[in-house]
Design a protein around this nucleic acid. Structure first.
Lengths: 108, 108
DNA sequence: CCAACATATTCCTTTACAAGAATATATGCG
DNA sequence: CGCATATATTCTTGTAAAGGAATATGTTGG
C-alpha cells in the first residue's frame, strides 16, 4: 500500500499514470505529450514498474507501457476501511449495496 | 489528489492515519503507540492537516486529531476512473451494483 | 551488417524533507 | 501565581530522489 502511494505521489508519475488510464503508451509518446525528457520518462516508468503499477510489452523498437490493475484494486480495498468515515452520507440503500459489494470482494 | 497522495506516502504518516481510522487520538497517544518522538508526531499531523486529511479539536491541554472524510472520498472518486481496468473481474451482478453506486455518487 | 530510431543506464548536482535536539507556547491544577 | 503536563516551533543535519547531460543498449528496416 505504502509502495503504491509513494509511486503515485510524484507529479510527473501521476500524470503518466493518468495518461495510461486511457490507453497504453510508448515512452516517446509520454515524453512528447508532457514535455518530459525521455530519460526521466524511462526512470519514472521504471519506478512505476518496480511498484507493480505498470507492465511493459515490446512492439518493434517501442516499449508499450500499460497499467496493471492489481495495485489499484488493493488501493480500492484499502479505502473500504475508510468508507465508514462518510457512511452517514449514504442512504440505507446505498449502505446495503456497499455491504454486498464489500462481502463480495472479501470472498474473492 | 496529488496533495493527498503525497501526504499519505510516508510511513509514519500512513501509520498515524490508520490509527485515526479507528478513532481520534491525541498527539501523546500517537507518540506513545508508535514510539515516534512527540515533535515529529506534531509535524506529521501538521502536514496531514495542511492536506486536509485531519482536523483538530482541543480537549483540556490535549489536541485530539481526527480524520476528515473529504480527501478519502475524493480518492475514492478518483479510483472510479480506474475501475474499468479490472471491471472484467466482476460478475454481471457486480457490475450492476457498481454501476448503481457510480451513478448514485455522480448525482450527489 | 549498418544506419536510424527508440529506450535504458550512468553520473552528477540540487533540492526537499524527515529526524534529532532544544526550546517556546499553551492549558489546567494545586 | 507557579508548576506540571501537553503540544508546537525552530534550527540543524543527513539522505533519498528528481532532473540534466551524456552515453550505452537494443531493435528494425534497407
Amino acid at each position: 500500500m505504502l509502495e503504491t502511494l509513494v509511486a503515485l505521489a510524484e507529479p510527473n508519475r501521476l500524470r503518466i499514470v493518468e495518461a495510461l488510464r486511457a490507453k497504453p503508451h510508448s515512452v516517446g509518446e509520454l515524453s512528447d505529450r508532457f514535455g518530459i525528457r525521455q530519460p526521466q520518462v524511462s526512470k519514472h516508468l521504471n519506478t512505476l514498474k518496480a511498484a507493480g503499477l505498470v507492465a511493459v510489452r515490446a512492439e518493434a523498437q517501442r516499449r508499450i507501457y500499460a497499467l496493471e490493475p492489481k495495485p489499484f484494486q488493493e488501493l480500492d480495498r484499502w479505502l473500504e476501511s475508510y468508507r465508514t468515515l462518510w457512511a452517514e452520507r449514504y442512504s440505507s440503500l446505498g449502505e446495503v449495496i456497499q455491504e454486498i459489494q464489500r462481502k463480495k470482494r472479501g470472498t474473492k
